Computed example of a mutant assay.
Amino acid sequence: MAGLATPMALRVAVTLGLPDRLLGSGATAGQLAVELDVSPVALGLLLGHLTTLGVVDRTSTGYRTTEFGANLCAGAGNGFTNLLLHLDSAAGRAELAFVELAHSITTGEAAYSRRYGQDFWADLAEHPRLRDSFDRQMTLRLDEQIPQIVANVDWSRFSTIVDVGGGRGTLLAAILTAHPRLRGHLIDLAPTAADARHTFRAHLLGDRAEATAGSFFDPLPSAADAYLLVDILHDWDDEHAHRILARCAEAAHPAGRVLVIEPVGGRRAITEMDLSMLVIHGGRERRIDEFRTLASAHGLALDTVTDLTGQRCLLEFRLATAAPCSSPAPSAKPVQRPPHHQ
């Protein structure tokens, strides 16, 4: 359980592109070493461990990717490549901050900036390739759950939704497609908001969906029926989570709702993700009472909690002066928890 050889071997293999290169007839270690400009002896050691793991087979003509190993190919469609690329992927790079876990446990602060000299978000802003891989991973991790999120929330109660930090807009597009009378406004940083506009155009939603470049630490579009936060608050410590909720509360009209969708500690979160949020962002998977305490500081009262998917809950907040919701979101049907991926 404590060995680092296997996870690092997989990351290096994916970073070097070995699973894709060794499809079909494969290649020898000598051929690969020349192509990749790496040490042939060291590469042989890596290939030996990948053989032990069942990622590659050794044949009379060299090494080739197994059916199991093909799950690590770029075209496998499961997001593993984007997670494991430790040079060009935001997720792969971020997980290497775990070597500084002791710092996070001692201080309660993120380890990312200790390892890389600046926080995760500043790194993304400085390196467009990391921003792109992060946006792609956020889309991948939510895609399989979008049908459940659309089906298990009564979105028809609303006429306008502001998707706060809504990424490339895949969830908002699905919600608007299912509810033709609904209008949506997505807020995210400029490169991501531009991608969201492409998503909306592709779904023929140009007249009902807009994407604005902005930060959720700044004033949000006002008087919408609902402000949607999907996998946002767990990325931040309490100080920043307060600032985000404050912006939602000040923007909402008196009968508006703030909808938080993310893992909830003790309910849909897993302990590994708790540590990931701490190490990378200084955040955590909060428990219901912690959400309630955060929100109450901004005049928000927790109305309902729904187990939405195998990995996420919906927490619906109203302004404390507003009447409780008369038709709360229906409870999600029981589902098995799918394998976790960040």
Rank of each mutant, 00 (worst) to 15 (best):
A255E: 15
S276Y: 12
A255M: 11
A249I: 07
I270N: 07
V260Q: 00
G266P: 06
T271Y: 03
R257T: 12
I261A: 03
E262R: 00
L275N: 01
E250Q: 14
G256M: 00
V264Q: 04
I261H: 03
D274V: 12
A249R: 02
I270M: 08
V264C: 09
T271D: 15
E262Y: 00
G256N: 05
P254R: 04
E262K: 01
A246M: 12
A255I: 08
A249W: 00
V260L: 09
L275S: 01
L245C: 07
A252E: 01
I261T: 03
C248F: 04
A255D: 15
E250W: 10
C248S: 11
S276R: 10
A249E: 04
A249F: 06
E262G: 02
E262P: 00
T271Q: 09
E262Q: 02
P254M: 05
R267A: 09
P254S: 09
V258Y: 05
V264F: 08
A255W: 11
T271F: 07
R268A: 12
L259R: 10
S276F: 14
P263A: 02
C248Y: 06
C248Q: 02
R268H: 11
M273G: 11
E272P: 07
R267D: 14
E250L: 10
I261V: 12
T271E: 15
R268S: 15
I270Y: 06
V260D: 00
E262W: 02
L275P: 03
V264L: 14
C248K: 07
V260G: 06
D274H: 15
G265V: 11
A249P: 01
A249S: 10
L259G: 08
V264A: 07
G256F: 03
E262F: 00
E250N: 10
R267F: 08
R247W: 10
V260S: 03
R267M: 12
L259D: 02
M273V: 13
A252T: 02
R247Q: 15
I270H: 04
A252M: 05
V260P: 06
G256Y: 05
A251G: 03
R267P: 01
L245V: 15
S276K: 10
G266L: 08
I261P: 02
A255R: 15
L275I: 15
V264P: 00
A252F: 00
T271I: 09
A246F: 13
A246R: 15
G265I: 07
A246G: 11
P263R: 03
E250D: 14
V260R: 01
A249T: 02
E272T: 13
A251L: 01
M273C: 13
S276L: 15
G266S: 10
M273L: 10
G265D: 13
R267K: 07
V264T: 11
G265K: 01
A269V: 03
E250T: 14
V264Y: 02
R268F: 05
V264G: 04
P254C: 05
H253L: 00
L275W: 13
A255C: 07
A246Y: 12
A252W: 03
A249C: 08
